[in-house]
Nucleic acid binder design. Structure first.
Lengths: 346, 346
DNA sequence: CTGTTAGCGCCTTCAC
DNA sequence: GTGAAGGCGCTAACAG
């Protein structure tokens, strides 16, 4: 079927020679945008020969010539975090119709890996970079890189950053969580906070804190999680039980479902029932979280939507349209399940 | 800090002009493998100038010249499936030290999208392709593509395929599941099978079936899931309850955790208790599956390991070492939790 | 409509 | 140890 020459690929020249025309003609005949410049019968001839010889355009050479590679960089913190995959999935959805391909790199929330990733991507001349791994102190690095290649922030924002940002409204999410718990009658609450240099967690905290304050409720302050994972949820829950035993809160807002699950496990082991003794509310509405015991109330994180919108914005930018809306906030909603209830009579 | 010229990037020539040497010298001075060919002081001069001007090598041009792009294609079925992320994570771990960058494409288990993905990747001249989305009838397409660019199969195998394969031992996994259930005393079982043209599910089925047969146990045959997701688990569980009400099995082996969770939900709604009325065993040992009610017994799928091994093999191949071991099987283990128990007295 | 020419930025001979 | 030249495969600009 597909032919091959001496170990190397078939080039435009080969096709041209085979048909007996010039390489430029082949180039034009095979480019949808220019095919009309070529006489119908030669075009057909060329297309036939191309298929017969198994010609596949070399987009590396094309990219060098044109200055556009048809690739987008995607920088994420951690692929293993269940929060990440939907975002990439959304980005991927937006790229496909534009025939763009993502290069996906992980930072592990490490600054030098972020820099290395950006370096790789810019060296490979991606047309645009989507950063879903930003921490506050990465701002200078990112803004600097953006002077060479357009960049946008997705999923994780940096306040005041000059780059376009496509974010979820974490502040609203935090407020929704607070409203729900306050509405149930809780007056002493606690937060399991994610790292303080990641916008999402700051937003969730701000929204939650502000809403609780306004209602005159008490919020116990715990240290932030180092990484918002199961183990840190366990650690913080133990701290809470050990150091605040006298004044246990009746409700807990975890900045993500993993932290919530960690806490839930510790509570169970230490004989506290949810929601009887503590109501728990998570964040992300992760897959399967409704099958947990008890099914977890959680703020929906619309990861696919965030990714898709970021991807769409990136595509517009890559194609030279610098759009007016240099910021998108995607709204939240709360999925109420059985892990939250009225507090027991005090 | 970083400089820029009239909207374009800094090139080798710019650095050369700045130092007053030839571009070849700059090229050599900045290439670790050739730097020794350059006098120490000119080398330092060049390196200084490069940094000062903010020179960043153009790997697109380099790739054209050298014939290697330093990129690997990664083809997955579905990024939103929790099974996928760990595999990519593992691949990513293997690529990083080799300074290679993955281009990640999704097929949605659709043949034409698989072909389009491969086309994209080969056009962009990736050095190697890792396919983690293979279905049995993709064999010809994949083997054909492999004549142009080295390809390997990861996570999902095709029996008898000529490409190197890095797989998990699904047959062992199915056997482990069966042994566990048989050991508990179950004699009438059922399988929630994934699609029949995906190697993993065929392997799980074979291992399970064979082990049950050898023990003389009865396995109820249900149609395969169309997609191994929650909804299909629900659908098949309903089919089971509606059509096999008279002879309900006491144990269920789901080909993945999502199918298991779907079935679990239906059973609960229809007043069957797990594990009292039905034992359930899943596959993948997904994150958080131990927090479900009841905590799910599951066969571990070592996705990160599979990805890492596949990535390592791909790296060796990309660097020209065609290795002897054209197949790797990664072992399984069972995580026993509370969703499986002895059957009730019949 | 088609051919010719001239690079895109880099790296690898081959000279010196 | 360094420079000059050529070309990877493609496409845009300019002729004809």
């Amino acid at each position: 079927m597909t032919a091959r020459r001496g170990g190397k690929g078939v080039t435009l020249k080969d096709v041209a020679a085979h048909v007996g025309v010039n390489a430029s003609t082949v180039s034009r005949a095979l480019d949808a945008r220019k095919a009309h410049l070529v006489q119908v019968d030669t075009r057909l001839l060329v297309q036939g020969a191309a298929k017969q010889l198994g010609y596949r355009p070399d987009r590396v050479a094309g990219a060098l010539r044109r200055g556009a590679t048809g690739t987008a960089g995607v920088v994420v913190a951690d692929l293993a975090n269940p929060f990440t995959a939907p975002v990439i999935h959304g980005i991927s959805q937006a790229l496909r119709p534009m025939q763009m391909v993502p290069m996906v790199l992980e930072t592990n929330d490490d600054r030098s890996q972020l820099e290395a990733s950006i370096d790789h991507l810019l060296s490979r001349r991606v047309d645009v970079v989507i950063v879903a791994a930003a921490r506050f102190d990465d701002r200078a690095v990112l803004e600097d890189a953006a002077r060479h290649t357009p960049m946008i922030l997705a999923a994780r924002g940096i306040p005041g950053c000059a780059l376009p940002q496509v974010l979820h409204d974490d502040q609203l999410g935090g407020a929704l969580a607070a409203q729900h718990l306050l509405g149930l009658g809780h007056t002493r609450l606690v937060e399991l906070r994610g790292p303080a240099d990641i916008g999402n967690f700051v937003g969730r905290h701000t929204g939650f804190q502000r809403t609780c304050k306004a209602a005159g409720a008490e919020v116990i302050v715990l240290e932030n999680a180092l990484r918002p994972r199961l183990e840190d949820g366990e650690r913080l829950a133990n701290v809470l039980l050990d150091e605040h035993a006298g004044r246990m809160p009746t409700a807990l807002f975890a900045h993500n479902d993993l932290l919530a699950l960690g806490a839930l496990g510790v509570f169970r082991r230490r004989k506290l029932q949810c929601p009887r003794d503590v109501s728990i509310i998570g964040y992300n509405d992760s897959l399967g979280i409704d099958q947990v015991d008890p099914p977890l109330t959680s703020v929906v994180y619309p990861g696919v939507e965030v990714g898709r919108r970021a991807g769409e914005l990136a595509m517009r930018i890559a194609h030279g349209q610098r759009p007016a809306d240099s910021g998108v906030l995607i709204t939240s909603e709360l999925r109420i399940r059985r892990s939250t209830a009225r507090p027991r009579r005090a």
